[in-house]
Simulated scan of single mutants.
Amino acid sequence: MNIIINNKSMQPIYEQIVESIKSMILNKQLPEGSFLPSVRGLAKDLKISALTVKKAYDFLEEEGYIATIHGKGSYVLTINRNLAYEEVKKEVEILMEQALTKARVNQLSKEDVAMLFQLVMEDTYD
């Protein structure tokens, strides 16, 4: 499993793991029924604490993305892709609102914000 951790990020490591696995599930890189690496195995691969991986797996389980069978491991559940897509859209909306609030507080013009948005879109969606 290809998960990249950014130790310089302000985002907690367990959240980075959650986002990576969610993305892999939504993009069908991790199909339903596929097993995730063990908590200890992933912790060893990522060179982080097993407790951090456990926290990420617990969060994914609470969100309905995975299930865990004691002694067998964690596997990907069948998810409602439309519901998951709406969840992602809501998360993006919240982040955009936060960015716009920061821009407004710092008195950036609508034109500057639109230009920045266009630049980021071009860099991201090439």
Rank of each mutant, 00 (worst) to 15 (best):
S23N: 11
E111W: 00
E111T: 07
K8W: 03
I66D: 01
A103T: 07
E62Y: 03
D58E: 10
Y75W: 05
Y57N: 10
E62Q: 10
R81A: 08
E97Q: 12
V18N: 07
Y57A: 04
E93V: 07
I94Y: 11
E87G: 09
E97R: 14
N106H: 14
G71I: 08
L46S: 13
Y57L: 00
A114Y: 02
T68G: 05
V76S: 03
F59R: 15
Y65C: 06
E62A: 06
F117V: 10
I66C: 07
R40E: 12
N27E: 14
L119K: 14
V53Q: 03
Y125N: 15
I5N: 03
N2E: 12
T68D: 01
K28M: 13
K72E: 11
G73Q: 00
N106T: 06
Y65K: 07
S49T: 05
L26P: 03
Y85D: 15
Q11H: 01
R104A: 06
L51W: 06
V18W: 13
A114G: 02
Y65P: 06
L95H: 10
G73H: 00
Y14D: 01
K54H: 12
F59Y: 10
E61N: 14
Y65Q: 05
G64Q: 10
S38T: 11
S34R: 08
M10Y: 15
K8H: 06
F35D: 04
S109V: 00
Q11V: 15
E97F: 13
F59S: 04
S34E: 15
V76Y: 05
E122D: 10
M10V: 14
A114E: 09
I25C: 08
L30N: 08
N106D: 10
G71D: 08
A99D: 04
V113E: 05
P12V: 00
D58Y: 04
H70N: 11
N82W: 13
K22A: 07
A103R: 07
M115R: 14
E86L: 15
Q16R: 02
A114R: 09
I66A: 07
N7R: 14
L60D: 03
L42C: 03
